[in-house]
Write a protein that binds this DNA or RNA. Structure first.
Lengths: 338, 338
DNA sequence: ATGTTTTATGTTACCGATAACAAAATAATA
DNA sequence: TATTATTTTGTTATCGGTAACATAAAACAT
């Protein structure tokens, strides 16, 4: 491995001079700078980041911890986060937790010992509080993305769950639906709780009393959706909901699949809508009406927030960014049948 | 920051003893081990990986460089790679190149200076040879995934392009198709060339002469597919292909979309099939007939190959793993119309 | 009890870079 | 030309851990 000492010897200067050249120190004579740069090129020298970290206390590594790497919503976040990180000279370590707090905890531990300068975290539940506190203790900056852990305050960036839920519910109400089911995620997640609240409020505002039988708590990336949907539609005729709102794209497509299996037509017999697009290209299968959260921006701006926090070092008051969603009306929602 | 010196002082031992405890050296008295471990827990000590790397020459960081983080095929590779890496105590840095060799080159450079122990690479084209050679020069182990750069030999893992292409083409031929178009990727990619060759051979074996007008070279993640498809179907009746084979899922769904826009029914007027599933859940939209490559396994086994190579250090002869695909026949392919 | 192993712990130097200070070389001024 | 200021370069110590060797303590043998 080529070190600054090798360069120094070859260029007849001290290692410190080489270090100065590398770091573009202004107090270097032009001639020596050229000479050193020449040797650097000649020996194909690459600085050792580990050694540097030892004194600088920074690794220029940041991590993004997401709950489902197969979900385009999160990969779009990853893309945004990566773009911003690279732009600012940081590397991104990506961690996938599968919505499992244990895996998340293990991951956070490894990231700390890997020496990351900061973490962009999509927490997988209330249980995340434990390991998030470890970050606080080590004063490693972190930013919540999509969801937060209210017990442990920190910067955050997320979609506007209230506005988005309202948009979707009002869209259904405007079409004439009054019996709307909401298949939500686990209530240990902040965004799930916000959506739940917004769902109730929007219904009440329209004079509809929320029906507990229509509000179902599930998991975001695995659950028995076939059974859940079957149960919903098996409610006797007058009770059966005419529309289903799914709290994410994964639940959305699973709902569609379950309804297809049950031979229930969408949107005629059941309107379906959800948060976030499920497809790899936007208009491949333009069927599902969705509220699209700006995932790329969430990653991009979240990373910006994080790196600002890393570089300022200041424990300034926490910042909270909330981004609006876009309602995309397609053909999975229509008027209810009479 | 808590160091072994802090631990040492508090436990009344030397730093070296602490180091030994951390590394589970067998020549430590039970009693002192317990005492040191006690203090470690007390002070919440986490070893500094950077300092360790300085002597050990390894960072336990590996990178996976993929061309499209939005594509489920690649995220499944990532998932497999991450699982294996974590299992063996390595961290994964994920890089997205958008099929752009410049971005890839820049990435490889940054990864080298970040000190990764190895790289899992899906090269974005012939132009990758340049930066791949840099890896060789620094003797940083790497493994090709999905595609290779034949000029620079190294371990590789990929799908069986010959078998997979043959499967798909034979499926179409068996249905009665003889005018089959192949929308392939850029010929700078090894897998594209292999598929092209397999396509020709399979046709010839069936007594069909490959028609150059049916063999189109495009890009894997962006191109004007609407135009390409429009051109194909505008061939006069007797010349118009009755089936389209797309070289990846992205081209596949774009083909479907273009055909929909042109109001050409699939599979009645045009059969469509492609490599790899486009959806986030396997059966959400069970329409496209595809040949599914084992992406997760490619990542998982590729990482295993890589880490073995890192740990052996030996410049043994290169290994090449080829995995078979699974043909999933759904409803986008059928008999040609008379 | 004394010497010899064996086991357990400590010392020193070093990994590659840099911060802080020291010294030399050059330029500016009297 | 001597003196001071300025620019440029070099020295030394340090970051946190570990390898290699040295030493002390305990266990065993004579």
């Amino acid at each position: 491995m080529v070190t600054i000492y090798d360069i120094a010897k070859r260029a007849n200067v001290s290692p410190m001079t080489v270090s100065r050249v590398i770091n573009k120190s202004p107090l270097i004579k032009e001639s020596t700078r050229l000479k050193v740069e020449e040797v650097i090129r000649e020996l194909d020298y690459v600085p050792n980041k580990q050694a540097r970290s030892l004194t600088s206390k920074e690794t220029r590594l940041v991590a993004l911890v997401i709950p489902d790497i197969s979900n385009p919503f999160f990969t779009n976040i990853a893309r945004g986060a990566e773009d911003k990180a690279l732009q600012l000279g940081y590397h991104l370590i990506l961690g996938n937790t599968d919505e499992n707090p244990d895996k998340e905890s293990q991951y956070i531990g490894m990231l700390m010992s890997a020496g990351v300068d900061g973490v962009l975290l999509v927490p997988s539940g209330e249980a995340s509080a434990g390991h998030v506190k470890k970050l606080v203790k080590r004063s490693i900056p972190f930013v919540y993305v999509d969801r937060t852990i209210p017990q442990v305050p920190a910067d955050s960036i997320s979609g506007d769950n209230f506005q988005t839920t309202r948009q979707l519910v009002q869209h259904l109400i405007a079409l004439g639906h009054r019996k709307i089911a909401f298949i939500n995620g686990p209530s240990s997640l902040s965004n799930v709780r916000e959506r739940d609240q917004a769902f109730r409020e929007t219904l009440q505002l329209a004079g509809i009393e929320p029906n507990p039988a229509y509000m179902i708590e599930t998991h975001f990336k695995q659950d028995n959706f076939d059974e859940i949907i079957a149960k919903l539609v098996s409610l006797q005729q007058g009770e059966r909901p005419t529309a289903i709102l799914a709290a994410n794209n994964f639940i959305g497509v699973n709902t569609l699949r379950a309804l297809r299996t049950l031979q229930i037509r969408v949107p005629e017999e059941m309107a379906v809508t959800c948060f976030d697009d499920p497809d790899i290209i936007p208009d491949y299968n333009p069927f599902l009406t969705v509220a699209k959260q700006p995932a790329y921006d969430m990653g991009f701006l979240g990373m910006q927030l994080l790196i600002e926090r890393i570089q300022s070092g200041a424990p300034a008051s926490t910042r909270k960014i909330v981004l609006p969603s876009e309602l995309i009306i397609r053909s999975s929602t229509g008027k209810p049948q009479e």
